[in-house]
Design a protein around this nucleic acid. Structure first.
Lengths: 224, 224
DNA sequence: GATTGTATCAGTGGATACATTTATATAGCG
DNA sequence: CGCTATATAAATGTATCCACTGATACAATC
């Protein structure tokens, strides 16, 4: 074999996987608008395959909550209502809270240093205007919850992040540079430094619930 | 149309939905063993359709964590390792904890009475030997987290319950009548009676984490 | 006798073709 | 003039077909 992780080139193991990845990233980047209808044939043509694998990709995306499939009525981009955004943050708060609590034993000085590096990168990505601040932001959180060592938990949290990513982007595009974000996250690091798992858990919960209202301000008005 | 909610008869809106429901309940009831391979053609023949809708049902089941699909190697029944059982209960604990906290304002004397009725039905189902004690048990929990009024949260919790249901059944079949369960759940009701949301949340967390080890004892030995 | 190579076969993935259903536009009617 | 009914077109859902992958059993060779 040439490489152990072999998707450096765009081709995937199966066409379905390729379709899934294609749509997944497109949705994450906000390439489609909530309510848009996804026509299997068009997407199939885009990436050179038949409708069939695309349909199956739809099923998985629906499970991720990124699209909604109504029988005989096609596949539409999901989007979140204001209530759903709040709900997602509520769920995130307890899930990521649990994750830090479990991650606590693995968090040493080295991890703290890494998180501070990521925080700097986040800020730099922010001033460059590009909205890959969002990617860095996720990286920061992923580093923490990744240390929980709980595969299912990690997957669920990651899925929630993808769901809200388009809204994070919109929010970021409105407010020039989120100064508050820097403070928010570095105080989170402080909480980790204490070594107190329960304290870190509630700190994470508050952090997440605290950002929800800011984001909600910018939810597509027609979706409220 | 004959009726507004038309799945009283076994036919569903689409063949895919029918296949999904069929397999979903079969997996919940433990009709298949972990590691079993599901052959699309066989299942399609069972319920009178082609492989295609069955394949799509597989995708959704995989998203639910009930089966695992490996490219070119078919679909196998998922099953949980010991670690995964614990992890599932950890996730349940915070999710259902959140749910009670949110449900608290909706919990009045009437709901308490309903829960006590359900607890009795649960006990009766238990002595009758039938393992639909499991169904009653879930009904009890579902009543509580259903009052949270959070659709996504409810779905996620329900999915976790389905995942562990086969193990609950095995556990129930081993221990004649779970006496402790009655106590456990009625003390949970007591916690609800206090009206203290934070207290109820931690009570639920403890309740769920407390049952995990009992169940883990009976996880299929080959899956540990 | 064990290991490796090869042939065969079951099963999966994907594409095309067909059947149903929904949406749209048009015509008829009140 | 507005509404309903019907016809038509577009898109979804399902079935069948073909190509390819992976597994298994057998044979040849070391």
């Amino acid at each position: 074999m040439v490489g152990s992780d072999a998707q450096l080139l765009e081709s995937s193991a199966t066409a379905e996987l390729e379709a899934y990845r294609h749509l997944h990233s497109a949705l994450r980047l906000g390439r489609y608008r909530a309510g848009d209808r996804l026509i299997p044939e068009d997407i199939a043509a885009e990436i050179g395959m038949s409708r069939m694998p695309v349909r199956e990709a739809f099923r998985r995306l629906a499970a991720d909550g990124l699209v909604v499939i109504r029988p005989n009525r096609g596949c539409i981009v999901a989007g979140l209502t204001l209530d759903e955004i709040y709900e997602t943050f509520e769920i995130r708060s307890v899930l990521e809270g649990l994750a830090v609590r479990l991650a606590m034993p693995s968090i040493d000085a080295e991890v703290i240093a890494e998180l501070e590096r990521l925080l700097d990168r986040m800020e730099r990505a922010g001033v460059s205007g590009s909205s890959d601040w969002v990617a860095r932001h996720h990286e920061f959180h992923a580093t923490i919850y990744g240390l929980s060592g709980r595969p299912k938990l990690i997957k669920q949290i990651a899925a929630l992040h993808v769901t809200i990513e388009p809204y994070l982007r919109i929010w970021f595009d409105y407010v020039e540079k989120p100064l508050s974000a820097r403070e928010e996250h570095s105080s989170l690091i402080e909480a980790l430094r204490t070594g107190d798992a329960a304290f870190a858990e509630t700190a994470m919960q508050k952090h997440i619930l605290g950002t929800a209202p800011m984001l909600a301000e910018f939810a597509s008005p027609d979706r409220r």
